[in-house]
């Protein structure tokens, strides 16, 4: 099973590395936010913002954005593979369906992990100062989340089968979830109704946890809740994605 998974992982990574423009493309959006929006936060007071600490609040949000868009858009790839006949020809092999999907999600996870590290490094000269172990733990959490999201995105791609259905779906789901998690500005600045709405969004807890980790506040209960939510959400999405992948290839 691990051989099969590795064979798929290798194939996806090879194709990706031959088109590195996509890796950079995925990074441009968060870096633009970093350069063109981040500096505004220095002069905002309240919500833990203001001064250099603004970066510790802002960069964790960008990491989440990277995972949501990077892994969320994975389904576009599977739609193309479906059309090329790659999915069918892999399904006709005795390889386990779990390997076919996890080899792919693994490649998304590694890509997002690398992008996350690059993003943090780019943020340093802007004035990010954060706990190193906190950053490392945050990247791990983001990777776990990316694993689940990409599995679910592949499943949705297989269900919807074409970009015309998939693009509005993924935009319609990802943007509200992202804004409601307080990625741009912390939810402590929000009016009560918005704060309540954000509390039912699991991603809110992921952002809260990574922000606490960036502060180096490991004992904060946000960290434990966020880690639990991330693991549970990642596992749930990965399970659903695998099950759907299996059913679609009955």
């Amino acid at each position: 099973m691990f051989t099969e998974m590795f064979v798929i992982f290798q194939r996806q990574m090879r194709i990706l590395l031959r088109n590195p423009v996509w890796v950079f493309f995925g990074l441009t959006q968060p870096i633009l936010y970093l350069a063109l929006f981040g500096p505004l936060l220095k002069n905002v007071s309240g919500g833990g913002l203001g001064g250099d600490s603004a970066w510790r609040v802002f960069v964790p949000g960008l990491l989440l954005q990277l995972a949501i868009f990077g892994a969320g858009f994975a389904g576009f790839g599977v739609i193309q593979e479906l059309r090329e006949g790659v999915i069918d020809r892999q399904r006709v092999t005795p390889a386990r369906r779990v390997s076919l999907i996890f080899g792919r999600t693994l490649s998304n996870m590694v890509t997002i992990g690398v992008q996350a590290i690059v993003l943090v490094l780019v943020a340093l000269p802007f004035g990010l100062s954060a706990s190193w172990s906190g950053i490392a733990s945050s990247v791990v959490l983001i990777c776990l989340l990316a694993l689940g999201i990409s599995a679910a995105s592949y499943a949705m791609g297989l269900i919807l089968k074409d970009e015309d259905g998939f693009a509005p779906f993924i935009q319609g789901v990802s943007l509200p979830l992202l804004l409601l998690s307080g990625v741009l500005l912390p939810m402590s600045l929000a009016p009560a109704w918005l704060r309540h709405a954000s509390q039912v969004n699991p991603l809110t807890y992921v952002v809260d946890a990574t922000r606490a980790l960036f502060r180096g506040d490991f004992g904060n209960h946000d960290v434990w809740i966020g880690a639990l939510v991330t693991v549970a959400l990642g596992a749930l999405l990965a399970w659903w994605g695998t099950r759907t992948f299996q059913r679609q290839s009955a």
């Binding site: 051989t3 064979v7 290798q10 090329e84 006949g85 020809r89 390889a95």
Partner: peptide, 30 residues
């Protein structure tokens, strides 16, 4: 025990190489 050749599909992705794709397929076959 079976081989399957589907209808002609969409143009292949950039970055796919003949030999690699054949070896990948064989490895998935075990």
């Amino acid at each position: 025990r079976i081989g399957y050749v589907s209808q002609v599909g969409a143009p292949p992705s950039a970055g796919t190489i003949v030999g690699e794709e054949l070896v990948t397929q064989a490895r998935l076959q075990g």
